[in-house]
Design a protein around this nucleic acid. Structure first.
Lengths: 337, 337
DNA sequence: CGCGCTATTGCAATCGATTGCGCAACCTTG
DNA sequence: CAAGGTTGCGCAATCGATTGCAATAGCGCG
């Protein structure tokens, strides 16, 4: 059905090897310019498309990238994935997407299946602060982490600057007059949860505000548990006037908790999220949050990985930090006297 | 690095062909049971993983499925994609995901690149009512359409029952007492836009309500244009008390238009969406809508495609229609006298 | 005029798995 | 015990592209 190198060679009366060289930009200089031209013409005419399995078998490169995320239905990820797709496909690479649901066993299985597929590299959004699998993986493949990073070892990564983002958030409510500021943190096994909590403590200290233990509560990454945890916080310390949540889902949990406690937002409680997922401008109330450039994280990760694939030798480990920005909407306001 | 058939054969003193047959369930009966066992043990011990490029080259099957959607960042799709991923990967297939942004040229290019990758079949969510590319594609590959369908030809598809869904929507507002019901329709090139509009007309007629031309307005699939169109509708006919939107984004456009015209929802205007995308329970006001089983559409499409790949001959064209359900929230209510 | 060099192309092996064909050994049956 | 059948396995070709090496031709230069 589809034309092969041999077909083209036959038609032109040359050897398949010549056709191969003519069509490959890297080796075309080995072939007479006129021949190259004839081959190109013929290939186009027969609309020849190289068989990636054949070339992959020979070269053991699949031009395929494993993309590992917790869950595609988490609105944080589609933007990042599109960023990768757009720049990977432009470079002739195809992402293979898998979900782990934050389960290490599933992750191991998915990574194994991607290795079975002979992917050329990995982009992972599933890093835990301590993550042996990733360390092992990084020693055999080019990998780039996004969003979250590991602590045990420095790996190439692309993420937003959490330190800066949290500073924007805390400064925002501080500037409006809040002093009783609390943080609803994500799980400490995740770098984002941990780092944002660390950043919160630091910024509070710099502002001269005390950070009592009870001002930081930890929850899993989901709305329901965030709501429960926020209920507890608000019950224990009713003086709190502003809560900085470690991501938008947690902020929504806080809003639901506030609603249940008959607190009005932002009059009685200011809430600020993190990530600015799609539709956060439409929830009730529209959520003030820290926007991270989702598409750009994805495309930057792809670029970084591609550059690793291009260079033979070890490129230096590059840790890209993108700058988040504050998006003020209606869930924050000055504290009520 | 990785073990090959030959390695196993050498270690066991048998021929690679025997190893191949022993490891393939379809041919294992050709090999002595004891040998099969020895081979399996050895393969496991050397943690042998077959090279998909090699087997693909020989068999010309990539165990790969092209998945073509308009835009992953549209919240309607991640659920469907996960549905596919989950059932495809269970069957040893890997989806290759591309976006078209509803642009036919991009679509053609993406489909071409998937064909270049030698995918074994396609799942497409980009059908237009008239769509020559798909007809051509269907003649050469197993394909399954999701969400939208073509009209020119009957192709295997999985979608929600739009007729039923619209009936649920219209009945809902009718039962609450609304009589001046309008429809904000999607573009007519898309089957969902067209069919939902058709269904709206039919149901209205069955209820004995007149459908004036002005009771149905057509808009593109985005919030901004939906808002403009809804503004026009409401200006032309202020008697309208309920609007059935062709999807959730359009419903949000309607809500924004209503807000701009100082109409309160649902007191002055009831709005009902379609699809029940994630977070539609959190927008202001929480959106009454028609839930379509997104994950199930994806997994059912995958199953359908897999069954086509399994059977050699032409399986009959199966058009699966899943049943949507009404989700009542706060954007609908009885009309105010 | 001949040697050596370069430019161009052909040859053939190779990547790893699959599969039609054939052969040998063993078994069944009359 | 011979004829015919079955079972188990090896042989070798094949899928399509890549690439080291060899071969040829053409050229410049002494």
């Amino acid at each position: 059905m589809a034309a092969t190198l041999k077909d083209i060679a036959q038609k032109l009366g040359v050897h398949p090897a010549t056709v191969s060289r003519a069509l490959n930009p890297r080796t075309a200089h080995l072939v007479n310019a006129a021949t190259v031209e004839r081959v190109r013409k013929a290939a186009a005419a027969m609309n020849y498309v190289p068989n990636p399995m054949a070339s992959g078998l020979r070269t053991s490169r699949s031009h395929t990238i494993g993309v590992v995320i917790p869950d595609l239905t988490n609105p944080l990820f589609p933007g990042m994935v599109r960023g990768m797709q757009d720049t990977l496909s432009r470079a002739g690479y195809t992402p293979l997407l898998v979900n782990t649901d934050n389960d290490p066993a599933t992750e191991a299985q998915m990574v194994a299946s991607l290795r079975a597929r002979r992917v050329d590299g990995f982009i992972l959004a599933t890093a835990r602060r301590d993550h042996p699998l990733l360390v092992e993986l990084a020693s055999r493949f080019p990998i780039v982490l996004i969003n979250r990073v590991t602590e045990s070892i420095q790996l190439p990564s692309v993420a937003a600057d959490d330190q800066h983002g949290i500073r924007l958030a805390v400064d925002h409510v501080y500037d409006m007059g809040h002093r009783e500021i609390a943080h609803l943190a994500g799980p400490k096994w995740s770098s984002t949860g941990h780092e944002r909590a660390q950043a919160f403590n630091r910024v509070m200290r710099e502002l001269g505000l005390s950070v009592a233990k009870r001002n930081v509560a930890v929850t899993a990454w989901n709305i329901e548990e965030a709501k429960e945890t926020a209920m507890g916080m608000l019950a224990r310390d009713p003086r709190i006037t502003a809560i900085v949540a470690a991501n938008d889902q947690l902020a929504i949990g806080v809003i639901e908790a506030a609603r249940e406690r008959r607190l009005r937002i932002p009059r009685d409680l200011s809430v600020i999220g993190y990530n600015d997922m799609p539709f956060m401008d439409l929830v009730d109330p529209p959520l003030t949050t820290i926007r991270v450039p989702q598409h750009e994280i994805g495309s930057e990760a792809a670029r970084l990985l591609l550059s690793h694939l291009a260079e033979e030798g070890g490129t230096p480990v590059k840790q890209v930090r993108l700058t988040p920005e504050l998006v003020v909407r209606a869930s924050t306001g000055p504290p009520h006297p």
